[in-house]
Amino acid sequence: MTVLIDKDQGILSPALVPALGDARGDGREIAIGLINNMPDPALKATERQFIKLLQAAAGGRRIRFQCFSLPSVKRSPEARWHVESEYSDLSDLKRQRFDGLIVTGAEPVAPDLDQEPYWRDLTDIIDWARTNTRSTIWSCLAAHAAVLHLDRIARRPLTAKCHGVFDCETVGSDPLTRTATVPLKVSHSRLNEVAEADLTRHGYQVLTRSAKAGVDVFARQYASRFVFFQGHPEYDALSLQREYLRDLGRFLARERETYPGLPVSYFDAATEEKLIRFEKRARHQRHPAMASELPALNLRSDIAAGSAAAVLFRNWLDFLAEDAATPLSLR
């Protein structure tokens, strides 16, 4: 899948994408690759979310956006067909020039990250991106995998899932967080974390943090600038709701034993009260058919989905454009 993102004209179909280098506006187009390893139910949504996010951040720039996925990520037949028919082959990644790369996490299937079936493919991408991109973004589980591979920083299990919308503050001054209005509201959905003390001890720069969720964004400079998100910058307003309903459905179907907690600062107060009452019934009457009895779900009015990510990604594109204009001898 290759699309051209042009804010003035919307998103052009692959058939309308001109040859590489045919750009208008403030310089040549920026080439962005997405290695989308999200689980099957979120595969297409993740494509759309990152396209929408980059479109909002593009300004007057033109972005060439191309999708890939690790072949070792297990897929259903339908999802595998989508990847094989719509995505570029991962082997093409190393034969092309990309200014920026975005790598998502995958649903874990092994007790340890370095035992995942896709571990070798993922670490190969980490090593390649260090010297072959201007900057790479590692999201959620991909961030945990990258720091484990690079510096043997092991993630730590949380006592409860970090799930919700969290207020984050900027730490110090960095071009990536320039003009960001704090607090930044960021979606997190994870069972593990990498600790700030471990990161700073190994030379990582913490850019944003939350009092409740811990480190949010951090970075490290190689030949490429690596930017790590423990959260999900791409999530839209309903992403956490879809995850909550998925986990609730698994509980009712006895596919998981723990009842999912409510996402933090996400549903409005009236919805939370209804869901708490529903939980009491569901624990006693546990049956898949109960899903049809869920109350209407309303979100808080102040979750500001995507607003923080739009600022960070606009600054990221600024960095890519400025760096692209700098001769290699002066970098």
Results as ranks from 00 to 15, higher is better:
2 T>I: 07
4 L>I: 04
5 I>F: 04
8 D>N: 14
9 Q>M: 06
16 L>R: 03
18 P>T: 04
26 D>E: 13
34 L>E: 11
41 P>T: 12
41 P>L: 10
41 P>D: 10
43 L>G: 01
48 R>T: 15
51 I>G: 04
56 A>V: 03
57 A>L: 12
60 G>I: 05
64 R>K: 12
67 C>S: 08
71 P>I: 00
72 S>P: 00
73 V>Y: 00
79 A>K: 08
85 S>G: 02
87 Y>K: 01
89 D>Q: 13
89 D>N: 14
93 L>C: 00
108 P>I: 11
113 L>Y: 12
115 Q>I: 04
120 R>T: 13
125 I>A: 02
133 T>W: 03
136 T>C: 07
140 C>S: 07
148 L>A: 12
152 R>K: 15
153 I>L: 14
154 A>P: 01
155 R>M: 09
163 H>F: 11
165 V>W: 03
166 F>V: 01
170 T>V: 15
172 G>V: 06
173 S>Q: 12
178 R>V: 06
185 K>G: 03
186 V>D: 03
194 V>P: 04
195 A>D: 11
199 L>W: 07
202 H>I: 03
205 Q>L: 14
212 K>N: 06
216 D>W: 00
218 F>D: 02
220 R>K: 15
221 Q>M: 10
222 Y>P: 04
225 R>N: 12
225 R>P: 05
227 V>G: 02
229 F>N: 02
232 H>G: 04
234 E>M: 06
234 E>T: 07
235 Y>T: 01
238 L>Q: 11
240 L>F: 05
241 Q>S: 11
243 E>P: 11
243 E>R: 13
245 L>R: 02
246 R>H: 10
246 R>D: 08
247 D>S: 12
251 F>G: 01
266 Y>S: 07
267 F>V: 03
267 F>N: 00
268 D>N: 15
269 A>P: 00
270 A>D: 13
272 E>V: 12
274 K>T: 08
275 L>H: 05
278 F>L: 12
281 R>M: 13
285 Q>Y: 09
287 H>E: 10
293 E>V: 09
295 P>A: 03
301 S>M: 08
301 S>K: 10
302 D>H: 13
318 D>L: 06
319 F>P: 00
321 A>F: 01
324 A>L: 15
326 T>L: 15
327 P>W: 00
329 S>C: 09
329 S>Y: 08
329 S>I: 13
329 S>Q: 13
330 L>V: 10
331 R>Y: 06
